[in-house]
């Protein structure tokens, strides 16, 4: 379990990083490394070059911008959780991201760019209607996630920051069911609701882990017709049941 050989570069600016990425088509971005390095250790990935963002200036800021919170790609999950600006939905989800120690180095941008179908932060970003800012463009989160470990990023494009709408006045809930604390969740549900006179006026409901990417659904009914993944630990039937329950719990909690 040792990584294969690769070249390594540690740029200090975004421009330099982008230029390096353009050099080799097998170049990969290294942020916190909490997902990338295990894949290297198992030799599941063989990048020609690792571009370490560790010294790139300006990627570690969290700031309020218009009605959103802008989170630099290299902000760690721990720093995000401890920030006064952390969106309430993300604050609920962050304790489920990896483990205490991996959150010290795991980054928000890395988690988003890795696009694991079971990732908590990806789901939250989609449910909040957030977006991903790259060196070239701004991509709505719903369009950013294309499949398990697959994003809309093009060669030479890297995540610079993510934008998390505050959705002032909305209510939120996040639910996850995992076999052990910190495991990949078998099913994840996040919901954002706006109530008017105690009645739901707007809602955004999202699922993850049971589908190949974080997915918005119209309502609880939609869970019944989704095509779900089964795995070693859970059959599709079980996952549907679980998702149904988590949706009910999340909606009830957000509306309460």
């Amino acid at each position: 379990m040792k990584p294969p050989r690769f070249e390594y570069a540690r740029p200090e600016s975004l421009e330099e990083a982008v230029a390096l990425l353009a050099e080799g088509e097998d170049a990969k971005v290294l942020a916190g490394g909490q997902s990338l390095v295990p894949a290297l250790n198992m030799r599941l990935l063989r990048p020609s070059l690792l571009v370490d963002l560790g010294r790139v200036r300006g990627l570690d800021r969290i700031e309020a911008r218009n009605s959103s919170v802008a989170v630099g790609a290299r902000v760690t999950q721990r720093a995000f959780a401890e920030s006064p600006l952390v969106p309430p939905l993300a604050a609920e989800a962050l304790p489920h991201v990896g483990h205490y120690v991996t959150r010290n180095r795991g980054t928000v941008g890395g988690s988003i760019a890795h696009a694991d179908a079971a990732a908590e932060l990806s789901l939250c970003l989609v449910v909040l209607g957030g977006s991903v800012v790259t060196n070239r463009r701004t991509i709505p989160a719903e369009e950013f996630f294309v499949g398990h470990f697959t994003t809309a990023l093009e060669p030479g494009e890297l995540v610079v920051e993510t934008l998390w709408p505050r959705l002032d006045g909305w209510r939120f809930a996040f639910e996850e069911f995992a076999q052990r604390r910190g495991d990949y969740g078998l099913s994840l549900v996040a919901v954002a609701l706006r109530l008017e006179d105690g009645v739901v006026a707007e809602s955004r409901l999202g699922l993850a882990s049971v589908t190949d990417r974080p997915t918005l659904v119209a309502d609880a009914e939609a869970v019944e017709s989704l095509e779900l993944w089964g795995n070693l630990h859970a059959s599709p039937d079980y996952l549907r049941n679980l998702t149904r329950i988590l949706v009910a719990r999340a909606v009830a909690r957000a509306a309460a």
């Binding site: 052990r180 495991d183 990949y184």
Partner: peptide, 16 residues
């Protein structure tokens, strides 16, 4: 083998 990593071979942890 379907339980080839510690993500699929589940050892109990403190909360379990």
């Amino acid at each position: 083998l379907l339980t080839g990593t510690f993500m699929d071979y589940l050892c109990p942890t403190a909360p379990d």
